[in-house]
């Protein structure tokens, strides 16, 4: 909320209009009625979807958004309540769930109590991510454990193989050093063959 400031209507007309739309402000000064009158009705209000309510501080409250991001909208959209109410404007469920969150917060519930209230009402399905308890813990940790276990196994096998091959290499190494250098014929032939690939 520190980042956003809702400017009052009067200040908006005063500052923003003065800076951006000098012509309209002159018109505004002449009539000075636009500010008190309700905004004009749209010619085709039915074409903009369901009517929205005015935005209050609750809609932008990070605390409430945080709660709503943990709750799943029950309309079947698969989104969390916050995302649904700010994205799917045809959905009537998420605004209702939002109002319910606000009501609970206003009545003094803590975050956990709000969550619990929703779980009591809709079941565990209402949580965006399962609670970290019981079988769900398996859900969270299994991939990590599987990767770590396989990784550790790979390291172990590799290091064992490594020591074996190192020993072999040492045995072979003493033999290969005894081997004479590549013959000159062979070296020249290799050079010629390599040149073909350049």
């Amino acid at each position: 909320m520190q980042d956003s400031v809702i400017v009052t209507r009067r200040a908006a007309v005063g500052a923003a209009f003065a800076a951006l739309l000098p012509i309209s402000i002159r018109a505004g000064q002449g009539q000075d009625t636009t500010q008190s009158a309700a905004p004009e009705r749209l010619p085709y209000p039915g074409m903009v979807g369901a009517a929205k309510e005015r935005i209050t501080d609750y809609e932008n409250d990070p605390f409430i958004i945080g709660i709503e991001e943990r709750l799943r909208c029950t309309c079947g959209c698969n989104l969390d309540v916050y995302t649904c109410r700010t994205t799917d404007f045809t959905c009537g469920t998420s605004p209702e769930m939002h109002r319910q969150v606000v009501r609970l917060i206003e009545s003094g519930s803590t975050e956990q109590e709000v969550i619990d209230a929703f779980v009591a009402q809709h079941g565990e399905l209402v949580l965006m991510a399962p609670k970290k308890e019981g079988f769900n813990i398996v859900g969270y940790v299994l991939p990590g454990i599987a990767i770590t276990a396989v990784g550790a196994l790979m390291l172990w096998v590799l290091s064992r193989k490594n020591s074996v091959t190192a020993a072999e290499a040492q045995a072979a190494g003493s033999a290969s050093i005894a081997d004479t250098e590549m013959s000159a014929d062979d070296a020249a032939r290799l050079e010629a063959e390599l040149a073909d690939l350049e």
Partner: peptide, 16 residues
């Protein structure tokens, strides 16, 4: 031409 480009050793043959 490629084979001729290298120098040779009288005992060890062409050298790389």
């Amino acid at each position: 031409a490629r084979a001729n480009s290298g120098m040779s050793c009288p005992t060890c043959g062409p050298r790389p």
